[in-house]
């Protein structure tokens, strides 16, 4: 009886979905609504409405601000999951020394990393995050590069050195920068009596409004970048620790 009910429900839902698919415009059709309405709107009014020369940034932060905030939350949740599953550092359970191999990387690698690391960080912050509204780039890309730079540093100099320079005390507040930045900028909009994540504040006019909007979007971009980057770093630290933990278990097996 129950199976029959489930089957019937599935059939009805399936029939509805198939009917809806039949009504959809053909794939890549010129008359599809996204071609006739969405794309022309973005291309014609994107700079004015989105507030960024780079239309991608305008779309990400303005038209789809809620969506981007959700993405940031997803990244943060991923960090929470990894920490809950792997990281013993935060729960004070790390008993093993974190450097697994015990082999130092060669002097060539260390020299090159020492030279390249500041350049990579500069590229991530100055070229990707801060300049994301005017040229290709943005917070997510900058955060990925920032995280990768510290990962390279960790591979070259070992986890102890890396955790000494980015201790837990520094990482914990930075991990939530992305969400906090988003919420703060959204609440500024609410305080002015407009919608959440509206960057054009009432009472601010002319060139000042544009400056304020750019500033708010830059704050969000930098928040996404630093938050995302530090989240990647923390995930990698947790996983490297766990690797060592698996290699040499010091917990007596039951």
């Amino acid at each position: 009886m129950r199976k029959a009910a489930v089957l019937g429900a599935l059939l009805i839902i399936g029939a509805m979905l198939l009917f809806a698919i039949g009504k959809m415009p053909a794939m890549n059709s010129r008359n599809a609504p996204d071609k006739t309405h969405v794309i022309p709107r973005y291309l014609e009014k994107g700079e004015e409405e989105g507030g960024a020369k780079n239309i991608v940034t305008g779309v990400i932060l303005n038209y789809r601000g809620y969506d981007t905030m959700g993405e940031v939350t997803v990244i943060f949740s991923a960090l929470c999951a990894v920490v809950a599953l792997l990281d013993r550092e935060k729960r004070g359970l790390s008993r093993s020394s974190p450097d697994a191999s015990g082999v130092r990387s060669s002097v060539i690698v260390r020299t090159v990393v020492r030279f390249a690391f500041p350049v990579i960080v500069f590229f991530a912050v100055a070229y990707m995050m801060l300049h994301g509204e005017g040229s290709p780039g943005g917070g997510f890309q900058g955060g990925a590069i920032l995280g990768a730079s510290v990962i390279v540093f960790t591979l070259a100099f070992g986890l102890p050195e890396s955790t000494r320079r980015m201790p837990l005390k520094v990482r914990i507040p930075l991990e939530s920068t992305a969400i906090v930045g988003f919420l703060a900028m959204g609440i500024i909009g609410l305080a002015y009596g407009v919608n959440f994540l509206t960057y054009l504040l009432p009472g601010v006019h002319g060139a000042m409004a544009q400056t304020v909007r750019n500033l708010m979007m830059t704050v969000i971009e930098v928040g996404i970048g630093i938050g995302g980057g530090v989240i990647f770093i923390s995930i990698v630290f947790a996983m490297m620790r766990e690797d060592k933990y698996e290699l040499q278990p010091d917990v007596p097996q039951p």
């Binding site: 082999v103 990387s105 060669s106 060539i108 690698v109 090159v112 030279f115 390249a116 350049v119």
Partner: peptide, 20 residues
């Protein structure tokens, strides 16, 4: 410049770690 730097270093690091 950075391509030259990073590729040569990568090749060195991969070969060394494989040998070791």
């Amino acid at each position: 410049f950075f391509l030259l730097l990073s590729c040569a270093t990568c090749g060195h690091a991969i070969g060394r770690s494989a040998f070791r």
